[in-house]
C-alpha cells in the first residue's frame, strides 16, 4: 500500500520522484526480467514439490482410502449375509417351537379327555347303582305301605262293623278288604 519514497536517482521511467507509479506498473519493462526470473524459480520449486512429494502422497492416501472403503463394504456385506442367516435360523427355531407347543397342547387335551371320559363313566356307574338302590328302597316302601294299608283297612272295617252292631268275622273282612284292594 504505502510506498516508500524512492531516491530521485532511482526514479526511472516507472516511478516518479515521490515513489508513485507512473502509468501502469504492469507495463514497466525494467521490472519484467526480475519477475520472470523469480516466477520460473517459483514454478520449478512448486512443480518438484508437488510431483515428487505431495501428489504421490495424496494419490496413495486416496487409493488406500478407496481400498479401505471397498474392504469395509465387503465386510459389511458379509455381516449382512450372516445376519440374514441368523434370522432364518431364528425363524426356523420359532416355527419348531410353535409346532412342538401345538403337539404338547394336543397331547394334553387328549389326556384330559381320557381322564374326563373315565370320570364320566364312573359317575354314570355310580348313578346307575344309586338309582337301582333307590328303586329297591321305593319298592320296599311301597310294599310295606300296601301291607300297612291292608292292616289299617281291616282294622277300620272291623271297627266299622262293630260300631254298626254286627259281629265281625275276621276272615270275611280280610277277604272283603283283599277284594277291594285288588280293585
Amino acid at each position: 500500500m504505502a510506498t516508500e519514497p524512492i531516491q530521485e536517482d532511482f526514479a526511472g521511467i516507472c516511478v516518479d520522484s515521490h515513489g508513485s507509479a507512473i502509468g501502469m506498473p504492469q507495463l514497466c519493462a525494467d521490472w519484467i526480467p526480475n519477475q520472470v526470473f523469480w516466477l520460473v524459480i517459483t514454478l520449478v520449486v512448486i512443480f518438484f514439490v508437488l510431483s515428487r512429494i505431495a501428489l504421490p502422497r495424496i494419490a496413495s492416501v486416496l487409493a488406500e482410502r478407496q481400498g479401505t472403503i471397498t474392504n469395509d463394504i465387503a465386510a459389511a456385506e458379509e455381516f449382512k449375509r450372516q445376519a440374514t442367516e441368523a434370522e432364518k435360523a431364528y425363524d426356523k427355531a420359532l416355527a419348531d417351537a410353535r409346532a412342538e407347543a401345538q403337539g404338547i397342547a394336543q397331547k394334553t387335551r387328549e389326556e384330559i379327555k381320557v381322564q374326563l371320559d373315565e370320570a364320566i363313566a364312573e359317575a354314570d356307574r355310580a348313578i346307575v347303582a344309586k338309582a337301582a338302590e333307590s328303586e329297591k328302597a321305593i319298592a320296599e316302601i311301597r310294599a310295606s305301605a300296601l301291607e300297612n294299608i291292608e292292616i289299617v283297612a281291616k282294622d277300620t272295617a272291623a271297627a266299622i262293623v262293630a260300631t254298626m252292631g254286627g259281629k265281625a268275622d275276621q276272615d270275611a273282612i280280610s277277604a272283603a278288604v283283599g277284594d277291594r284292594m285288588k280293585g
Binding site: 500500500m1 504505502a2 510506498t3 516508500e4 524512492i6 531516491q7 532511482f10 516507472c14 516511478v15 515513489g19 508513485s20 507509479a21 502509468g23 501502469m24 506498473p25 504492469q26 514497466c28 525494467d30 521490472w31 526480467p33 526480475n34 519477475q35 526470473f37 523469480w38 516466477l39 524459480i41 517459483t42
Partner: peptide, 28 residues
C-alpha cells in the same frame, strides 16, 4: 497503482534480474 510497484527488499537500488524484490518475497 502504487501497490503494484516492484521494489527491492533491501536498499533502494535498481531492480535487476536477480534482485531480491517484493516479487521474490511473495512468491516465496
Amino acid at each position: 497503482m502504487d501497490q503494484f510497484i516492484v521494489k527491492p527488499l533491501f536498499g533502494h537500488g535498481e531492480v535487476g534480474m536477480f534482485t531480491i524484490t517484493n516479487v521474490t518475497l511473495w512468491m516465496a
